[in-house]
Amino acid sequence: MRRYKTSYPISWRFMDVLEAAFALVLPRGGGRLTPYLLLTPAVLLVGTLAVGLLYIGDSSLRVLDRSTFLFSDYWTLENYQRAFSESFTATIIWRSLVGAVIVTAVTLLLAFPYAYVMVRTSSALLRKFLLVALFLPFFIGQVVRAYGWLIILGNQGIVNDALALVGVEPLRLLFNYPAVLFGLVQYMLPFGVLMLAPALTAIPEDIEAAATSLGANWVRALFHVVLPMARPGLIGAGVVVLTLSLTDFAMPAILGGGSQDFVANAIYDQFFRTSDQGFGASLTLILIAVGSMTVGLIFAVFGAGTLALGANRK
């Protein structure tokens, strides 16, 4: 029995069961269509989203009649005209975009050394510690973390209590732009590190040893060799952090306290507070357009990085 166990692992038996089940669903192995069949659920999910987008496009072209609270039965560009004429729209788009760019830059700056040490350290203990520290925030969730910052940075928060001990007047640390960006950077850091780590792992250690033996000190090795070779990872991490920050809702809502709304907050207000679905939908499409153009610009200038996956990685 023991010999049977060692030469026929339990995982193989598990796979036998799976294969049998698979054969029931797809007799004769399924043939050439199987890969496409397996792809179907994912395509359906994404497809539903695309259909939703069509509905949003439709709503964005119907204007709300404020006397009857009914939407027009004809298509008009009024919502877009309103969006482009009100300075409010420009303000929140500009605030979101600038915020996303700052958050991306700061996150990459902080994530790079973190990922580098995590990948390169010879101490297994340090690597584990860095990994756990990275994943712990994921278990907590964005909203809870934002409330945590309220407790720490509030007027009666820990920081201000500590400042009071040394006789400093309470500082207003919350409900301003820097507080939102601070919260976003803290939220994005794990994403940045996780996207960068594989790119750094892909750089052989001998490459850095070679740069050293050829006369480079660590700063020059970093700028001439490591950073250029980590470029695909930097682009991949940058695009992910940028798009997530640009469309973020919770941090501006909680740490901005209503005074620092991003586009997503404005959309929420239109849908659920003023019930102007049409205007909300037009803002949604504008946000998608701004995000797509920004990412498109990055791809055009820097290439697609790790997001190009198999093709053209070199």
Partner: peptide, 13 residues
């Protein structure tokens, strides 16, 4: 010292 590495460690970029 000039060194040629086992996996060459040329700079691909």
């Amino acid at each position: 010292i000039g060194m040629v590495f086992q996996k060459l460690a040329l700079f691909p970029h």
